[in-house]
Design a protein around this nucleic acid. Structure first.
Length: 417
RNA sequence: CGGGGUGUAGUAUACCGGUAGUACGCAUGGUUUGGGACCAUGUUGACUGGGUUCGAUUCCCAGCACCCCGACCA
């Protein structure tokens, strides 16, 4: 339980004029994030809790499909980057020099680091497959940061790397991860489309992007409303209005979308660069096949803020909410009634704080009710519980659902059950 | 990186070549308390550097920062 009077952040009536994107405006106004510079944000108590919940969901789903969590360095030696060619080829790679002119890179993706780590342990086919993942900061030297926390120069990302003895084994795992990703987005309150896209700079094969329709997105996708066909317009050979090539039942629609994840078949590129080979049953040596699976953790939070919020403020899905219950007592002039309200509130909090993501307690009873309601709506906690003389007369507490705005008045006994 | 725009208090803004004004916030006191309450008092400011000028926050130049469009995008 957190007392709101204790929370060091406050809501703001106005967003800074240099923030245009909805996600940044709301997150700043509600005190979830603080902007350091273009594309770089710090996460404050409420924002960090949301981020932590996104990470927890991802961790659970990655563990469930056999991922093993590690934490790699973000300050990298230049050598592996030079070995794979990334040092010169990847223009977003931040490069730096020490006082003694040694060269380093900041991690923008970590194939160069993870491949040698896997190589240190995977000598035999018996050691494979392996799926290693981490959740941490990434750095990209973007020419233009934009869209609040959705495209930054420093951002949070989950990156998983897998190593396999055969294409079939990789393909199987590829499908497992795709399903797992869809589950993650659902738990985050979003519907993501699996979208065919280009393989980028390191693969000639197509990759899959996970796209959420939102005007704040940077990509245009073509999708079918009948089946799950979806393709990024950058590689599409068809156009809006054409019949769906998969089901032929609908004509394709075009929409703006934000990429909240991607999966790549990296083949043997990195294994070859590092001479990473394992020994098979016959004693022969082979390069493993490698996959890369990313989810932009901070961008995901930004897309949720964009997609779910309304004119009153943020709206958090159940699992991501910084707190699940916003308890808000309203006091009057009668000291006895006030004492009773606060006693009921104590009991209620003791129960609710053990459930889901716990309680934010608006103990600022000296503030006007309107200001506190407005704050609550801006912060976007899913369930608001008001206890007042009025609510007690009606038989309990007023429970308002932030998602649909409906209010019910259950008894206090049922709430503490 | 190409193009465009903007830099005034914690935030949003106004005016101005000559003492920088307002609102919100914040502080103190008092009155309030079911939809961003009110009164009083107080508090805080011209991105950096150069130039023009008697005098620059204002005009000019450069730099920096931020935003937007495009390009780019593991």
């Amino acid at each position: 339980m957190l007392k709101q009077s204790h929370l060091f952040t406050h809501t703001k009536k106005e967003a800074p004029k240099d923030e245009v994107s909805k996600n940044a405006q709301l997150l700043i106004r509600a005190g979830f994030v603080h902007k350091e510079m273009a594309g770089v944000y710090s996460y404050l108590p409420l924002g960090l809790r949301v981020l932590t919940h996104v990470e927890r969901i991802i961790r659970e789903e990655m563990d469930a499909i056999g991922g093993q969590e590690i934490r790699m360095a973000t300050l990298h030696p230049a050598d592996p980057w030079k070995k794979t060619g990334g040092w010169d080829a990847i223009d977003v790679l931040f490069k730096l020099k020490s006082r003694t002119d040694n060269e380093y890179a900041l991690g923008q993706s970590e194939e160069e680091i993870v491949a040698p780590i896997a190589q240190e342990y995977a000598f035999s086919y018996k050691d494979l497959p392996i799926a290693l993942y981490q959740i941490g900061q990434k750095y990209r030297d973007e020419l233009r940061a934009k869209s609040g926390i959705m495209r930054g120069r420093e951002f949070g990302m989950k990156d998983m790397y897998s190593f396999h003895t055969s294409q079939e084994d990789f393909d199987t795992f590829y499908e497992v991860v795709k399903k797992s990703y869809i589950t993650i987005y659902e738990r985050c309150g979003l519907t993501a489309k699996v979208t065919e896209a280009s393989g980028g700079s390191f693969s000639t094969k197509i990759s899959y992007e996970f796209m959420v329709l939102t005007d704040a997105g940077e990509d245009m996708i073509l999708y079918c409303e009948t089946c799950d066909y979806c393709i990024n317009e950058e590689i599409a050979k068809i156009k809006e209005g054409d019949a769906c090539p998969k089901c032929a039942k609908s004509s394709l629609k075009s929409g703006k979308a934000s990429e909240v994840g991607n999966v790549f078949d990296l083949g043997q590129k990195y294994a070859k660069a590092f001479e990473f080979m394992y020994t098979d049953e016959k004693g022969e040596k082979h390069y493993p096949i490698m996959g890369c699976f990313g989810i932009g953790v901070t961008r995901l939070m930004g897309v949720v803020a964009e997609a779910l919020s309304d004119e009153k403020g943020l709206v958090w899905p159940t699992e991501l909410a910084p707190y699940s219950f916003h308890v808000l007592p309203l006091l009057g002039k009668d000291a006895d009634v006030n004492a009773r309200i606060m006693k009921e509130v104590d009991t209620l909090i003791a129960t609710l704080d053990r459930k889901e993501n716990g309680v934010l307690f608006d103990d600022r009873t000296d503030m006007s009710a309107g200001a506190r309601f407005t704050d609550a709506e801006l912060i976007g906690i899913p369930t608001r519980i008001v206890i007042s003389e009025k609510s007690l007369e009606k038989g309990g507490a007023e429970v308002t659902n932030r998602h649909d705005g409906t209010t019910t008045i259950p008894s206090l006994e049922s709430l503490t059950a």
